[in-house]
Write a protein that binds this DNA or RNA. Structure first.
Lengths: 121, 121
DNA sequence: CAATCATTTTAGTTTAAACTAAACTAATTT
DNA sequence: AAATTAGTTTAGTTTAAACTAAAATGATTG
């Protein structure tokens, strides 16, 4: 997608991701754990598009990949975001928007993860 | 759709509409004439959703409907918009985004408007 | 009242975003 | 080397936004 700063902050999902990595880097897993209503893959894709747009930086260390916002890339939009996160009213809106903005397929019945009972290969 | 201020300004089309009606009201027709790449209907729909979102006000007078932005409804986002419109760099981006962001069906061959040569009914 | 003007509304179409599921990769542990 | 951990990638699905074309509305004009 390659969202501009303006498009990036239009999505409540991306806004949440940005909030988590605004002041400190976070590994992809931690970001996903903070949004358990979507798959890890979905989070990874959003992170990728934010990196491609130049809005987020990634750093690999061992098994982890740490992400952080490139605040300077947001220009005057940065202030709006920071303002939002301090504002109680905005917070209330977020939950509603997150629920409402769900696109993509509904999560189907998760297949039980292959707990193959030690059958020798 | 009912876009929030943030969603409203994410769309280059809506940004253009807002610019036209930011400082003075304009009739729907004038707004459409300023964006001849879309149909009148498309403009009308965007205006409707902006009104429903509380971001724009409409006033009817005779055959015309005049629209203007409710600047106070944009909060801190208003400054970003005003800043954008003064910025040469942003202007360049707009054209690109407008071309790129085209969804919906491609305009098909316009049927020649019924110039029914005075066949008595 | 028919025609025209200004605009809205309806019904249907196209597209990209946002997602899921599952396969994959690469580093680490046992 | 098998299993586990952390994450990415791929292929396909669903949905809403953004549009078009055309019909409908309502005010005005000849």
């Amino acid at each position: 997608m390659m969202p501009s700063a303006l498009e990036a902050i239009a999505s409540p999902r991306r806004r949440e991701i940005l909030r988590l990595i605004w002041n400190e880097e976070q590994p992809a897993g931690a970001i996903h754990r903070a949004m358990p209503d979507v798959t890890f893959g979905a989070v990874s894709l959003q992170l990728r598009s934010l990196v491609e747009a130049g809005l987020v930086e990634a750093r690999a260390e061992q098994r982890n990949r740490f992400y952080r916002a490139r605040r300077e890339a947001f220009g005057p939009v940065a202030e709006i975001l920071e303002h939002m996160w301090d504002d109680k009213l905005w917070k209330l809106k977020l939950a509603a928007e997150l629920a409402e903005s769900r696109r993509g397929p509904k999560p189907r019945q998760r297949r039980n993860k292959k707990t193959r009972k030690k059958k020798g290969r």
